[in-house]
Design a protein around this nucleic acid. Structure first.
Lengths: 340, 340
DNA sequence: GATTAGCACTCAGTAAATATGAGTGCTAAT
DNA sequence: ATTAGCACTCATATTTACTGAGTGCTAATC
């Protein structure tokens, strides 16, 4: 168990290191107003903290830096989660409302807002439209050989694709088929749409079966498209200002990793479903992010679970500020109504 | 006017420097098979080439490197444009055909292909849909308060937006309005759609004028959306392998610049309309690209003018290879038919 | 007159040598 | 239990010297 003073020192070391990115020495600490002990006393406590694995030194004659264990202790014991500043939250809500007509816009705005507030890179993932339900399906002819398949969901999400007919299609045949599909499939979750399509059509007995099959295939190819979620990055540039990313060795893996949209989406979707979750340094298990910490949270919009938002910074990130900003943002989102 | 030998030397310097990124010395050159002169002779010619501004030395005791003027001479006199290797072009065509169902996919594939071939970063811009013509406009109700506005163009491009009604809309009223708009506006270039919408509706005399106005406004907001073109980046990572981008001072401006999609689009659209155009070093006038050269070309697809594709590398780029690959790619694109 | 050998000179880059100073651990005094 | 004092460590900065690739110029050679 840590003594009062050790706790004070640990906290001071981390706070100082977060600000300066430099190892913190005992003399520096003893000069702080809130630590009126001699440097020798502080050195003794530092030695104890080091024995406990909470801090470490880069080399013999340097000051101490927090270890990952130290950060973990700090986050778990010394950072208050969910302290909502009503005024600030309200202010965020205002800024979000300006983009509230469209979910994609809102997600982008949320990502930008959070990165503005924290100066870290953020990633926001929109709702997984696999859970949306079919509102309407349509096939609009462009000319005699091409058409556009449209799939609308109840959440206002739209998928579309241009398709090419093997042979010209009679407009009334298309119309008939579309009416049939809409009658049968309305309300089907998008994730199941592809298989449901096959089922429904196999129950049909029709004259121009062959043409129907072909058209169906075209529609199916649209339903299977891999556009299930929208993803936005905010403040990518911020990484350039972090002192730990001033060399190519650290910068390059990060940038290469963050530019790979698909992997990023998979990663965000694989995160544990929690309100606010902090992953420190190598805890995230991703090589390119070994020197990064991540604050993630699921968020709801107008009551409904909506997506995930993440904030990525160096392990030496300002956890207190980050957690608080994240808390206020998701609170502001919770209170935001889409489609005002 | 350059002597035969000076030309040979200039060419050798540039070829060598392009490969090694190191200043080229007279002794190195004299060891080449195609330059059987003594180093002193070569030094004399080098001095002349330097007087002409074609080459320069980073410092007194270094070899020579090409100047921008030198590269310009090289590109204008020593690089053959439009040498089509039928087999290679055919091969490219094959790889493109796999993505030929959808224009967006094809553009992306073209960008990736070109960056694979050259190891430079590429940007491909799709057709500017401002020139497309309206094929169909629609408003599909989602529930009593929301709907989706759809705008389809004759090229199969789709714009959509979720809109919210101030007050519930009668379905048949919507239907009537949509039918009216389609009748009047079919074939209108998308760029003019917004103003044409106002004109058409102002000619109307109707009972529920107010509601119409509101609906019109919603539709207009969709028409004015800034999604006119699709843009793809290929091989962004390649920049990390270029020796001139191994420091943050050079890398950062480049990456920040290339990540700004909107500016990138504007830039590509502002380029002179040519087949293959090479901009060397500071010629492009962009601070972030002062050490880059760009090979751009408009391309056609299935005969129709379609978009612009650009290849961005260090000023010390392999112009011969780059120009040739670009030529073959646009030739392959020209022969590709969309919607096979 | 064109080419080449030879030589003094320049200068970036590297490596070794040295100094600096922030910080530590330990001991003995308070 | 706390603190002053001191010897020790080691990353970083500064100086110095050295190396070698490359040049320009001159005089000899073809």
């Amino acid at each position: 168990m840590l003594t009062e003073r050790q706790l004070l020192i640990l906290r001071a070391i981390i706070d100082d290191y977060i600000q300066t990115a430099q190892p913190v020495g005992s003399r520096t600490l003893s000069k702080r107003d809130d630590l009126s002990f001699s440097s020798a006393t502080i050195r003794n406590d530092m030695a104890d903290l080091e024995d406990l694995g909470l801090i470490e030194k880069p080399h013999t004659s340097a000051g101490r830096i927090p270890s990952e264990v130290g950060y973990r202790y700090y986050v778990d014991h010394l950072v208050e989660k969910r302290v909502i500043d009503e005024r600030e939250t309200h202010h965020l809500g205002e800024r979000l409302r300006a983009s509230a007509q469209e979910s994609d816009l809102l997600i982008r705005q949320a990502a930008d807002l959070l990165s503005d507030l924290t100066n870290y890179t953020t990633v926001a993932l929109g709702p997984n439209s696999q859970m949306n339900r079919l509102a309407r399906i349509d096939l609009m002819p462009l000319d005699e050989r091409r058409g556009v398949v449209l799939i609308l969901t109840d959440q206002g999400h739209v998928e579309h694709r241009t398709v090419v007919f093997e042979s010209p299609m009679a407009p009334d045949m298309i119309e008939e088929m579309i009416r049939f599909l809409n009658d049968r499939l309305k309300g089907t979750p998008i994730g199941q749409l592809k298989s449901r399509l096959s089922e429904e059509v196999s129950t049909l007995q029709l004259a121009n079966r062959e043409q129907y099959e072909h058209m169906l295939q075209l529609i199916q190819s649209t339903a299977g498209l891999q556009h299930p979620t929208s993803l936005y990055l905010g403040g990518k540039k911020n990484i350039f200002n972090q002192p730990e990313f001033q060399t190519l060795d650290t910068l390059r893996p990060f940038l290469e990793w963050i530019d790979e949209q698909e992997r990023l989406t998979d990663w965000l979707e694989s995160l544990p479903n929690r309100e606010i979750y902090v992953s420190i340094g190598s805890e995230n298990g991703i090589l390119a992010l070994q020197n990064c910490s991540v604050i993630t949270s699921d968020y709801t919009l107008d009551g409904k679970t909506f997506g995930t938002i993440a904030m990525i910074g160096p392990t030496r990130m300002d956890y207190r500020h980050g957690v608080q900003m994240m808390g206020q943002l998701i609170e502001a989102l919770r209170r935001t109504k889409l489609e005002e």
